[in-house]
Amino acid sequence: MLRHVRRIFLLLGLVSGFGSSSALGADAGHGAELARRWCASCHVVANGQAQASADVPSFASVARRPDFSAERLAFFLLDPHPKMPNFPLSRTEAGDIAAYIASLR
């Protein structure tokens, strides 16, 4: 129950913090830096990256999903989930990473 309430508050924070579907105010350049630092050990985060885990999607493939939403992705990054390390991202950082991924569409 508490986790469900936490998700609702995170979602409300994201909706109020990001505004429209383009995650207003998000910095894709900063998101690219964060992705190279924190995500590239598992995901292919940019063209020319030589190594990543075989069983995880590239950022470009995530961006091309028909149901892709930068807001939903940022929310996903803020909520701990078992298959990924628990990085202590701020809402701004999660939005920046989501904006970077969206820029790969």
Rank of each mutant, 00 (worst) to 15 (best):
R3P: 00
R3T: 01
R3A: 04
R3M: 01
H4A: 10
H4Y: 14
H4C: 07
H4G: 02
H4V: 11
V5C: 10
V5F: 15
V5I: 14
R6M: 04
R6D: 12
R6L: 08
R7Q: 08
R7D: 07
R7P: 00
R7Y: 09
I8R: 06
I8V: 14
F9A: 02
F9E: 11
F9W: 15
F9S: 09
L10Q: 03
L10S: 05
L10E: 05
L11P: 02
L11N: 09
L12N: 12
L12G: 11
L12F: 14
L12Y: 13
L12C: 13
L12E: 12
L12D: 13
L12M: 14
G13D: 02
G13Q: 09
G13C: 05
L14W: 02
L14M: 13
L14I: 07
L14C: 11
V15K: 15
V15D: 15
S16G: 13
S16V: 11
S16Y: 13
S16K: 13
S16Q: 15
G17Q: 07
F18V: 04
F18M: 09
F18I: 02
G19M: 03
G19P: 00
G19V: 03
S20Q: 15
S20E: 15
S21C: 12
S21I: 12
S21K: 14
S22W: 15
S22P: 01
S22C: 13
A23L: 15
A23W: 09
A23C: 15
A23T: 09
L24K: 12
G25H: 10
G25R: 10
G25V: 12
G25D: 12
G25I: 07
A26M: 03
D27R: 10
D27G: 08
D27P: 05
D27I: 07
A28C: 08
A28F: 00
A28N: 00
A28T: 03
A28V: 02
G29M: 10
G29Q: 13
G29W: 12
G29L: 12
G29V: 14
H30M: 11
H30K: 11
H30Y: 07
H30V: 09
H30T: 09
G31D: 02
G31V: 01
G31C: 03
A32E: 05
A32N: 01
A32K: 03
E33L: 11
E33I: 09
L34P: 01
L34V: 11
L34C: 05
L34M: 10
L34E: 03
L34H: 08
A35V: 02
R36F: 07
R36A: 04
R36H: 08
R36Q: 05
R37F: 10
R37P: 07
C39I: 00
C39L: 01
C39M: 02
A40I: 06
A40L: 08
A40R: 10
A40T: 05
S41Q: 09
C42T: 01
C42G: 06
H43G: 06
V44E: 09
V44W: 07
